[in-house]
Simulated assay, not measured.
Amino acid sequence: EKNLFSPVQSDILEKRIPDHLRHPEGLWFGLSKRARIIIYTKADGRPEKLETYDDLADPSHKGDICMRSSSNIYNISLLASIIEHEGKEAAENWAKGVVANFARPAQGNDTANIEAVGAGECRISLVNTYYVGRMLGSENADTRAAAEKVGLIFPNQDGRGTHVNISGAGVLKHAPNRENAIRFIEFLTSDWAQLAFTEQNHEYTAVPGVSETSPVPGTDGFREDEINASALGVNQAEAVRIFDRAGWQ
């Protein structure tokens, strides 16, 4: 939107990166993914009526939910996707419903909320998968134990699929080494680089079929929301305004 990137045409990138993970005009390309999933306190059992993001706003979960701040890009991105799928009014009703179910004011990062849910301070939260993967793969026994106390739900599996956030790259208009910049992004879609994202940072590969092992132990593949990621940026400002009106600090 600031007009900093230049379009890239690359047969490799267009072949390797699915349409929904790259800008329609080639301004950027997604390179890795993390899913925004629901977690719950395993010791208390899986809560009823908790299959979709919409379910988080159900009054049956009143007083059960911990969340991080609405200023966090992961939450803004999720609400932006809800705006795109369901419209502004539905998105605002959802945000107000979730706030009404808060166990405490929004606080902490994803790791802190995993720990809070595992400790029973609240029963439900939303986190990115790679935080869970990192904790389960930690050399620290206490960190692993905290992550093992939460159950995982990939929302909307019977509908549009689970929301994913991405990391990606583009080429600036005034890049002094444009051709090498493109080659570098192409390299980041190679099997070797894609596996590095998974093995070192517990992210999902943007390139389909590269890894047969989930970066989050104990989970399998999942249906992801294939909304084009560019829509998330377009709807960000409206998402922030909705959060503010809903009282999600």
Score class of each variant (00 low, 15 high):
3 N>W: 00
165 N>P: 00
87 G>L: 07
104 R>V: 11
159 G>P: 01
245 R>P: 05
107 Q>P: 00
149 K>V: 02
5 F>Q: 03
66 C>L: 04
101 N>A: 07
150 V>S: 01
40 Y>E: 05
95 A>P: 07
133 G>F: 05
32 S>F: 03
180 N>H: 09
19 D>W: 00
147 A>Y: 04
77 S>Q: 08
247 G>F: 07
241 R>T: 09
2 K>F: 07
249 Q>D: 13
26 G>V: 07
51 E>T: 11
173 K>N: 14
142 D>G: 00
31 L>E: 08
167 S>A: 13
207 V>F: 09
101 N>S: 05
51 E>N: 15
82 I>L: 14
206 A>Y: 04
130 Y>W: 12
13 L>V: 09
63 G>C: 06
100 A>G: 03
208 P>F: 12
63 G>K: 03
9 Q>M: 02
30 G>S: 07
123 R>H: 10
144 R>N: 01
31 L>H: 02
196 A>D: 11
56 L>I: 08
49 K>C: 01
91 A>D: 06
33 K>R: 14
164 V>Q: 08
135 M>G: 04
163 H>F: 13
210 V>S: 08
134 R>W: 10
212 E>P: 00
25 E>N: 14
73 I>W: 12
203 E>N: 15
213 T>S: 05
126 L>A: 03
206 A>C: 14
186 E>L: 06
36 R>K: 10
38 I>C: 06
54 D>S: 15
9 Q>G: 08
139 E>W: 10
211 S>F: 02
166 I>D: 06
246 A>L: 08
77 S>M: 09
123 R>F: 00
231 A>V: 13
163 H>W: 09
192 W>H: 13
91 A>R: 04
191 D>P: 12
48 E>K: 15
104 R>C: 00
193 A>S: 15
76 I>W: 04
195 L>Q: 15
189 T>P: 03
96 K>S: 04
225 D>W: 13
226 E>V: 12
50 L>N: 05
88 K>T: 12
121 E>M: 02
18 P>H: 07
48 E>I: 10
209 G>R: 11
54 D>I: 01
23 H>W: 09
209 G>P: 10
117 V>Q: 02
44 D>Q: 15
73 I>D: 13
217 P>R: 02
93 N>A: 12
153 I>D: 05
99 V>F: 07
131 Y>H: 13
161 G>P: 09
195 L>R: 15
104 R>M: 15
224 E>A: 11
180 N>I: 01
180 N>W: 10
9 Q>W: 05
122 C>Y: 04
98 V>E: 08
174 H>V: 09
117 V>F: 06
162 T>K: 02
25 E>C: 00
43 A>Y: 10
242 I>V: 06
211 S>K: 02
16 R>S: 14
227 I>W: 02
101 N>M: 05
6 S>I: 08
58 D>T: 01
127 V>I: 15
26 G>F: 04
132 V>H: 03
5 F>I: 00
183 R>T: 04
238 E>L: 12
93 N>C: 00
4 L>N: 05
177 N>V: 06
175 A>W: 09
9 Q>H: 15
187 F>D: 14
189 T>Q: 09
76 I>E: 13
141 A>T: 13
85 H>Y: 11
70 S>F: 10
197 F>L: 07
228 N>Q: 11
4 L>K: 11
181 A>V: 02
145 A>C: 01
35 A>G: 01
75 N>P: 00
64 D>V: 00
60 S>H: 02
172 L>W: 12
